[in-house]
Nucleic acid binder design. Structure first.
Lengths: 136, 136
DNA sequence: TAAACTGTAATCATTATTATTACATTTAGG
DNA sequence: CCTAAATGTAATAATAATGATTACAGTTTA
């Protein structure tokens, strides 16, 4: 798994802290310590999923579409990292009854386990994160 | 995440299919399509955790310690891949209140989510896997 | 029309993963 | 007691994934 998920959460939390302002990728990059181009790539997927809005050109930037209490972490995880908990099994031996069938079974099992992972994240909102930051 | 987990499950399922026999890493490698040295490294961690027994020398090899219905996948996951679902956050800006605190919070949240992932795997045994293979 | 932005493709650097080689050690069996 | 067949493990090499950077086109403000 790459760190797109944690970077995306960071971006969204940052935008939530600056609600109703327009923030540049340069600005967010300062906080996350990640290259602005990489951020824009991640922000771009968040925009396509309607989490944020972007505006090009001078005085452009990014802003949040929704209230922090309505944005749950499972949604961000799905956008950035869905199926990454499902292992890539090596292409095992087709002539072996175990090798032949195991990977499909394991993929299904891990997919179900990921659902439970996501279900927990569904209970955590960006507001929860912000609140925790404020209390620390 | 590397594929140690799925390889380990494959090994254990293979040994379960050949209960009471001693199987070589070469033999298992045939089924998994992975280099025997890599397998022995993974098998070595399974041995240290008492899942399997190994015997060196001629006529040596690996065998299962326990009944397939007593081996749950969460245990194998913990041995091979614990904490891999917890994102490595980039070292973000210490001077930014969000950057400073977010990674600890996210790590905790993902750790909890991983618990739910593991809890699901706890309900799946090697016997379940074998049964599914036999029915497919 | 210049400056400040986003959008995105392409390339390069770094890190993680996997395969392979090499060799020490153990054990069975003639 | 010697040889062949195994595990155990370190070290290196090859490959793949991740991340940073460069480059530049397009958009918008002033």
């Amino acid at each position: 798994m790459n760190s797109d998920f944690s970077i995306a959460v960071h971006c969204v939390a940052y935008l939530a802290k600056k609600q109703n302002q327009r923030v540049t990728s340069e600005d967010i990059a300062q906080s996350v310590s990640v290259h602005p181009v990489r951020l824009r790539k991640i922000l771009s997927t968040l925009r396509k999923e309607n989490i944020i809005t972007s505006k090009e050109g001078a005085k452009g930037g990014f802003s949040l579409n929704d209230q922090p209490e309505h944005i749950t972490l499972d949604k961000i995880f799905k956008i950035t990292s869905e199926e990454t908990l499902v292992p890539k099994c090596p292409d095992s031996n087709e002539n072996c009854p175990i090798g032949k069938n195991l990977s499909d079974i394991l993929i299904r099992v891990c997919h179900n386990a990921e659902e439970h992972f996501l279900n927990y994240l569904k209970g955590v909102t960006i507001k929860d994160i912000i609140d925790e930051i404020n209390n620390s």
